[in-house]
């Protein structure tokens, strides 16, 4: 069974009298260790799909099985638990707690996982080391550059060892040079066996992945593998 199994997933929104299909009958599977980009213009339904995969939203109909767990029927608190253990989020706007240190920000998912403070600190430091911020742990977000902030966010996504890392326009708020650095980091994480899903509308960003799922009008328009020649690779590894 795939890591992510999406079967006939639909999501409806009621806007006054009208009913809008943000996603209709989408089926897709993603394997463990894949590096996938979900692409599409705004309003295509890619954010809806990402929210569903990220367990931030529940589908109107259809099935969604994540890491062997049926999540389409779960309630609020169960979803919170799945988000905490299975998913690491990376947001376009970083979403760090502005008044807390990098270390505290990275520890946060472990707090909600109810892990004791010593282990928490250890693992947060380890994650910060992995993203190359081992020397910035006591800095607050406003003392860090944009790229460093996004690294803190990535460390936060990694820290609870989730099944997938879900990144929503991770380079959207960064200059192109820093963006490339962040994409290199994702590549490195991918090469270490992490499953990564990047949602973006930029072809450049998507071409770092090995597979691109294109969404248009709530449907999957294309699902293509990228040959190694077409792939953009940053000389990191």
């Amino acid at each position: 069974m795939s890591l992510i199994e999406v079967r006939n997933l639909s999501r409806l929104y009621h806007m006054g009298e009208e009913t809008v299909y943000a996603l209709r009958d989408v089926s897709v599977g993603i394997e463990k260790g894949e590096y996938v980009a979900i692409m599409g213009p705004s309003g295509s339904g890619k954010s809806t799909l990402m929210n569903l995969i990220g367990c931030l939203d529940s589908p109107t109909s259809g099935e969604f099985i994540l890491n062997g767990i049926e999540v389409s029927e779960m309630d609020d608190d169960e979803l919170a638990d799945v988000r905490n253990r299975q998913i690491g989020f990376v947001f376009q706007t970083f979403n760090l707690l502005a008044r807390s240190t990098a270390l505290h920000n990275v520890e946060l998912p472990l707090v909600y996982a109810e892990i004791d403070s010593e282990t928490r600190r250890e693992r947060a430091l380890e994650a910060l080391g992995q993203v190359g911020l081992g020397d910035r742990v006591t800095h607050k977000p406003n003392e860090l550059s944009g790229g460093q902030r996004q690294r803190v966010a990535i460390a936060r996504a990694l820290v609870n060892r989730p099944a997938i890392i879900l990144a929503d326009e991770p380079t959207g708020n960064l200059d192109s040079k820093t963006g490339v650095e962040i994409m290199a980091l994702f590549e490195e994480l991918s090469s270490r066996g992490n499953t990564i899903i990047v949602v973006t509308h930029e072809e450049e960003v998507a071409r770092h992945a090995r597979r691109i799922i294109r969404i248009r009008d709530g449907l999957i328009a294309a699902d293509e593998r990228i040959s190694p020649e077409d792939r953009i690779q940053v000389g990191q590894s």
Binding site: G54, L56, D76, D77, A80, D81, R83, N84, R85, F89, N95, L108, P109, Y112, A113, R156, N160
Partner: peptide, 8 residues
């Protein structure tokens, strides 16, 4: 906080 796993 909820996205990171905080319950109600």
């Amino acid at each position: 906080r909820k996205a990171l796993g905080a319950k109600r």
